[in-house]
Design a protein around this nucleic acid. Structure first.
Lengths: 191, 191
DNA sequence: TGTACATCAGTGAACGCGCGTTCACTGATGTAC
DNA sequence: TGTACATCAGTGAACGCGCGTTCACTGATGTAC
């Protein structure tokens, strides 16, 4: 990995090489920059070592936080899913609850949906699935499609909900229409 | 910010407090963990100090990388936009090019679309807009809607494209259908 | 009732590491006379 | 043609910082006899 200086006139070449090297490093997906163990301890007015009374490592703390956020999201959705209404209304409520939670907890949303797979944490697969399964069941109840089509539509709805939440988090300056209208509109078009 | 020990039986309380504190810190959106200046220098087999021959700071390097990625994306899209075809086909090509670039450069996609607003970099607003404007113009040409409706549809398409790319990057284990089919299907439903 | 001891909920100092940034330097290559 | 000097493209060592992790400790509270 030796490297000799660029020839005399070609100093600008390194600049391009640096940008190219950084771009190459960006070919791998990156994870979200989470608050450090020490930052969390500070927020609790506690020494960093105290964290180790309850967690084996910073990883384990992150896992616990992720778990808690998933629980919170699930609880938020369940508490807002109305009973005894048509499937389409339930679907809209599901979408509103999901988007509402995401927009109210941007960092948590990023942890759960924009990095969880990269933090090599234990299995949370089924947690993710439950959301889609729920939506697929609602879609299936709404329309007379095969289970596969219902799953495909559910994934499509999730895609749109994720895009809606994620873009509003990351590009807040764009002229986004009201969330709920947008959800209704998209459900009408996709289902 | 003093804090006294929990009472004797209540040691587990701190565990919950730590998770809660971490969750509170996650109320703010977080940025993506980018490769460090030193890592980039290493990838070029060059000393960290050499970076300062070309950039004022690590920030400036990040800005340059972001710029380069935006250029690359724009070039990728332009090179794949066919001439002399109906607007709908151009729209599909736009979507394919966007999604193709994102899935081929996940880390770069995260930098551009999942953190740029949080790195307090100079103005790249218009760069972002150009993409939407292009799509809106195509939508407007396709259908007989008002400019506002065209913009709304364009934002909706972008939302779906972003959801499609982002979820596939972050949840690669889910049973995603082929990208191109999905794009066609969604355009058919949204436009 | 008093006292020795165990346990519990932490603290404080230290470690090695990678980070961004600085500063004095080096060695090769060009230019002036 | 030779030599002094300037410039260019970097290096190497050091800085202070925050990080995750460890380890010996402390002081309050409960328990045994």
């Amino acid at each position: 990995m030796a490297r000799e200086s660029n020839p005399r006139g070609a100093g600008d070449q390194l600049r391009a090489e640096l940008v190219a090297a950084a771009s190459a490093l960006l070919l791998d997906p990156q994870s979200v920059a989470l608050p450090s163990l020490r930052a969390v301890a500070r927020a609790c007015s506690v020494s960093p070592a105290a964290v180790y009374l309850h967690f084996d490592s910073a990883q384990a703390l992150t896992t616990a936080v992720l778990d808690a956020q998933l629980d919170d999201l699930e609880k938020a959705i369940r508490s807002q899913l109305p009973e005894g209404v048509p499937p389409r209304a339930r679907l809209a409520a599901l979408g509103r609850a999901y988007a509402g939670w995401g927009l109210a907890h941007p960092g948590a949303y990023q942890l759960v949906f924009e990095s969880a797979d990269r933090l090599d944490l234990p299995e949370h697969e089924h947690d993710r699935w439950s959301l889609i399964d729920e939506a697929a069941r609602l879609v299936a109840a709404e329309t007379t499609v095969t289970p596969d089509q219902a799953t495909a539509t559910a994934l499509r709805l999730w895609t749109m909900l994720h895009g809606l939440v994620s873009l509003r988090i990351h590009k807040p300056l764009l002229p986004w229409p009201p969330v709920d209208d947008e959800i209704d509109e998209t459900i009408a078009r996709l289902v």
